[in-house]
Design a protein around this nucleic acid. Structure first.
Length: 442
RNA sequence: GCCGACAUAGCUUAGUUGGUGGAGCGGUGGACUGUUAAUCCACAGGUCGCAGGUUCGAGUCCUGCUGUCGGCGCCA
């Protein structure tokens, strides 16, 4: 039961004049008593198939008439090049319904359900996500997502990074601690990981250049177009590297993703209404860097109320990035605004050697990273300064006790990058089954 | 944790100062030999989210609850 003819190839004219067997799903169906038009869909596209009663006979004709939207069918026929709007049609000679659709429960995702949902994110469509996946909008989004994942793997593998996996059950926090999901663990409490970073640092002296793509979990009740509770995190860690060295790869991987989308998914980008010139600009332009102090001054100059030492929340990021036309790195945040693992700048220890990459068009932070506090003396200082108990981080401190070296890394929000580059209205559009604080189904 | 909206048929929705809920899509039956969201005729389909209250009378007004959506903080 294999399949060897794809609708995408029919559409390019590859099978013109030949007999083909097409396996797929009824996308639309219309017609009269003598002729029926079935727009057939498979994973590669749609094509109109013409079924005539006088050709296929009464029994097949009636069966096809009863094949409702999303019935699975096998159609055999001759591919014909035509002047009509589809370019290529299939003149059907025989047809069979494989999986019928019960008229008492017709396919619920109708034109009207799609029409009003610009971003495709109505409650109804979210409840019926398992069926919504097969619509054109989700299909092309999932293909672009696949390209993004592939691009991240190829970027790092082409540069001799080793893919390395960390556990998803963990004992402690990376960031803060308030956003951990608790999981019962044989009478104890475990947590779902928020980041691969601490485990990556443990492997850094072994592998030196490593990366991963894995889910991270954050129990934030965030209700925004940028947040999921389960999101895909692309992270890298690199030995013998400074903040600047890390940023080079952050810029590199993001530009490589944008370029890959243009090369592999131009049709899908256009289908989603994305301006290709914008994506090309993100692929081709260097990303500027701005120190935190400069960002604060800029904001103060714009009349925004902000004091030195405050972290930049989204309302401020949004004002700041409104005029940016390419992603921009913000570097050198005040030490008091960042967690202990960020290394203080030896030139001025009020700051830490870190960076955030802010995407334009209001998509917010897509990368957070920097140089790690790497000597035993400094890490103990910073842990104490935060008032964090040392014993929770013994293994992390150990890494510094045995041949610590300068190193760093970053984490990239893959779903956020998908949303931004495809121009999605909401991060939920970029993942098959989105998880947020109010939704774990379907 | 905080702020703001919304809930009517499978879907998208109309519903006026409170007076027995309409339409389009989808479904079913019929007509039609080239349709493009096909068209035309007919039919079926509703505990107006739930629970109270006001009223002669509530989809409509009030209270509570539930669910959903949008946003803030936090972050990728």
């Amino acid at each position: 039961m294999t399949k060897d003819t794809w609708i995408g190839d029919v559409r390019t004219g590859e099978h013109d004049g030949a007999e083909v067997e097409l396996k797929g799903w009824v996308h639309r169906s219309r017609g009269s008593n003598k002729i029926r038009f079935i727009v057939l869909r498979d994973s590669t596209g749609t094509v109109q198939c013409v079924i005539k009663r006088e050709v296929v006979g009464d029994e097949t004709f009636e069966a096809m008439k009863g094949a409702l939207v999303e019935s699975s069918v096998i159609l055999t026929g001759i591919v014909e090049s035509t002047e009509r709007e589809h370019g290529h049609e299939v003149q059907v000679t025989s047809a069979v319904v494989v999986g019928p659709v019960n008229p008492e429960r017709p396919f619920p995702i109708t034109e009207s359900a799609m029409a009003e949902a610009e971003g495709g994110e109505t409650e109804f469509l979210l409840d019926n996500r398992h069926l919504y996946l097969r619509t054109g909008r989700m299909t092309s989004m999932l293909k672009m997502r696949s390209t993004v994942f592939g691009a991240i793997h190829s970027y790092f593998r082409d540069r001799d990074f080793i893919e390395y996996q960390a556990p998803n059950f963990v004992a402690g926090a990376v960031e803060g601690g308030s956003t951990l999901f608790e999981v019962p663990y044989f009478g104890r409490t475990a947590y779902l990981t928020q980041s691969w970073q601490l485990y990556a640092e443990a492997a850094m002296p072994a592998l030196e250049r490593l990366y991963t793509m894995a889910p991270s979990f954050r129990a934030e009740k965030s209700r925004t177009r940028r947040h999921l509770t389960e999101f895909w995190h692309a992270e890298m860690e690199m030995a013998w590297a400074s903040n600047d060295d890390i940023m080079v790869h952050g810029e590199g991987v993001v530009r490589h993703i944008a370029r890959s989308l243009l090369d592999e998914r131009e049709a899908e980008l256009i289908e989603q209404g994305r301006d290709l010139n914008l994506v090309a600009r993100y692929a081709d332009s260097p990303y500027p860097r701005m120190r935190y102090d400069e960002a604060v001054e800029t904001l103060q100059g714009m009349g925004v109320e902000i004091e030195w030492g405050q972290d930049l929340d989204y309302s401020k990021e949004k004002v700041l990035t409104a005029d940016f036309d390419v992603p921009t790195f913000l570097t050198h945040y005040p030490r008091i605004a960042k967690p202990f693992y960020h290394r203080p700048d030896p030139d001025d220890t009020k700051y830490v050697l870190c960076h955030d990459l802010l995407a334009p068009e209001g998509y917010g932070e897509i990368i957070g990273g920097g140089e790690r506090t790497w000597s035993e003396k400094e890490i103990l200082e910073r842990i104490d300064e935060e008032g964090t108990p040392r014993d929770a981080y013994e293994f992390y401190i150990d890494i510094r006790r045995y041949g610590g070296v300068p190193h760093g890394g970053f984490g990239l929000g893959v779903d956020r990058v998908c949303a931004w580059l495809t121009g999605a209205e909401h991060i939920r559009e970029t993942i098959a089954f989105p998880r947020d604080s109010r939704r774990v189904t379907p």
